[in-house]
Design a binder for these strands. Structure first.
Length: 266
DNA sequence: AGCAGCCTGTCA
DNA sequence: TGACAGGCTGCT
């Protein structure tokens, strides 16, 4: 679900709407979706809303922190209709009115309370590499050269690039004309450069579209994005490739659905 | 490095 | 009924 563009969309909206608000009572409806001591959050003000890869990292007063990961089906919303929705797992009241709702059907995602924002950031940063905009062509190529894993597997590895998920990995590989099954070490300098540029391009379009709501993603206001109408290959089994007229095929790489046009992804 | 597992819902 | 779903973790 939420990949970098979706999480960044939520981050920007949340920053705009609730910075300065104080968190009141917290209701944990399903303990699977909450980790740590919820008392840490109570009475704390929301000071900043950051993002590291697909992790949302909220800075609170007195140096505390709140980590949110949406995983596959999570939503972090302010829309009060979520108070009575079936899969709302955590309700965090805001003292001035309203609440933050964590909603998640599959319960893979979570909200986690941290005494120390510093520690939270350190721990999360240790799990991921740079954003696609933070890495140079040269460093990216260097990583690819060192492994024989399939290029698509590498794109999904959060230690290599933070924030790339299945949708944007598939679409970026198509845009770059690279077959997802190829060994990363065989990607040439020009191709690596084009691939990195393609990742930035598709994620840029995703962000400008408010994210992809193919399935369950919703933004901070509970609204859908539009990138699902712009998928290049993701999920388009049997559709015609707009570049070469070939047929888009579904294969599996690393247990994940993978879409490829064999006509123009070589 | 690769793969099951986490959990619930939808679609073929 | 079985396959599959935007992700990560922990185990082999």
């Amino acid at each position: 679900m939420p990949e970098l563009p979706e999480v960044e969309t939520v981050r920007r909206q949340m920053e705009k709407e609730v910075v300065g608000e104080e968190i009141g009572k917290i209701e944990i409806r399903d303990s699977m979706c909450f980790d740590g001591d919820s008392e840490i959050l109570v009475g704390r003000k929301i000071e900043k809303v950051g993002r590291v890869g697909k992790w949302l990292l909220v800075g609170l007063s007195e140096g505390a922190g709140m980590e949110v990961h949406l995983r596959m089906t999570g939503r972090l919303v302010v829309d009060d209709k979520y108070r009575s929705m079936p899969h709302t797992r955590v309700v965090m009241e805001l003292v001035s009115g309203g609440a933050l709702y964590y909603w998640d059907t599959r319960k893979f995602g979570y909200v986690r309370a941290w005494e120390s924002e510093k520690e939270m950031t350190k721990v999360v940063k240790a799990k991921v590499g740079p954003d696609p905009w933070e890495i140079s062509d040269k460093v990216f190529l260097g990583i690819l050269k060192k492994t024989n894993r399939k290029i698509k597997d590498i794109l999904l590895d959060q230690k290599v690039l933070a924030g790339v998920g299945n949708i944007y990995a598939n679409d970026a590989l198509w845009l770059a004309g690279i077959n997802p099954e190829r060994s990363a070490s065989e990607i040439g300098e020009d191709e690596a450069k084009l691939l990195l540029q393609s990742i930035r391009e598709v994620m840029g379009v995703g962000l400008a579209s408010g994210g992809a709501s193919d399935n369950t993603y919703r933004d901070f206001y509970g609204k859908s994005g539009n990138y699902q109408n712009k998928f290049l290959v993701y999920g388009r089994t049997g559709a015609k490739c707009v570049r070469c007229g070939g047929v888009i095929e579904r294969i599996v790489i690393g247990g994940r659905g993978t879409w490829v046009c064999r006509g123009c992804q070589v």
